[in-house]
Simulated assay, not measured.
Amino acid sequence: MKIVIRILLSLVVLIIVLVAAVFAMRFYNTQKWGFDGDMEDVNDLSIYPEVFEGGTVEHFEHGAANGFHFIPDDPNDAEPIAVFGGSEGSPNTDTAEFLAENGYEVYAMFFFGADNQVDELNRVPLEFFGDFLEYADLAGTDITLLGASKGAELGLVLTNYYDEINNLILYTPSSYIFMGLSFEGDMASSWTYDGEELPYIDLSQSDFGAFARTMFDFAVLNPVKYRETYESAVEMNDNSEAARIDTGSFDGQALLIAGGDDAMWQGDVMAKQIGEDLGDNAQVEIFEDAGHLFLGPTALAGMMMGGTEEANVQAGEDSDRMVLEFLEENAVN
């Protein structure tokens, strides 16, 4: 009996020590990373600009298309640019404003979460892009598409359905279609066309060790590194080839930009894969010391982005220059 009691007491002490260790790590990581859980509501239209230096901004909504039209007072003679953000759901208006200040007409768009769209990044109907072309009267007109992260995945997918996409600029892109992100646990493809889900990589079919490390990071409030999960899911899914994004329909020029220390997913590897598929039509630029975002922070919203602050900022400045050079060469009439 005494032995049993000692064992139980030892287990209680062990549990107390483990709980204390978890709370200590949570406190440490909160102080280190400063995550407060508050994120800007990207669907609040009041946070977006109505003017920029050298032009105006108009909100538009048509069918399932929703976004902002950046109109320069003195526009370049160039094809218009469609811009997407990533899985945070923003229309990437900072990039749109940068381009518009350099004379380009830009449409910055939501692809989920807006009033006339699906609520989550899950089973997003690609036909919203056709609604955009109809609204902007751009059907049959060459356009450049710029996407970042999940928006880059979307951009490459759209080339299989809309011939209007003449040039691509993809930041930390994906060469695969990955599963959608649903807080309701509805596991499905990110994208649909004509009511049918496109083949996708299921992230639940990934390495258990990667899953366990992710859960541990969640528990102790350490920024989560998702890259290993994405990499192992590509290796472990039986339909990886079916989920690979076809590039055969795209015959324009592409600028593919990624960080070599991307902690979110293997954006550098996938940029090179896309570049190999497109051959001479692709320019691939890898910033070896940069992470997923070229903004500075190495972690954001509880997720590890990678890189160093200095390398990320430098990659942002250098990639801005590359984008303008690419547009001058390929998008200006």
Rank of each mutant, 00 (worst) to 15 (best):
F110V: 02
A100G: 09
E309C: 01
Y200G: 02
L8D: 05
K150Q: 13
I16D: 04
S46E: 11
D73I: 01
F110M: 05
G180A: 12
G306D: 07
W33N: 13
E58S: 12
I245H: 01
G103L: 07
Y135L: 00
M270A: 08
N102F: 03
L255D: 00
L9D: 01
A242G: 09
A258C: 04
V19Q: 09
F84A: 02
A24W: 12
Q117M: 14
F250K: 03
D74C: 03
M264E: 10
W33V: 03
E184A: 12
V19C: 11
N312V: 08
E231Y: 08
A299D: 13
A290K: 07
R213F: 11
E153Q: 15
A108R: 01
S189G: 09
G180T: 12
F326Q: 00
A212R: 09
I245Q: 00
F98A: 07
M39R: 15
S232C: 11
M187H: 10
R227F: 07
M187K: 14
H62K: 07
M304Y: 10
S87C: 04
L146H: 08
M1T: 14
Q273G: 00
G37E: 04
G180C: 13
T172H: 06
G185H: 04
N330M: 01
L181C: 05
L126H: 02
F178A: 08
T141A: 14
G147R: 03
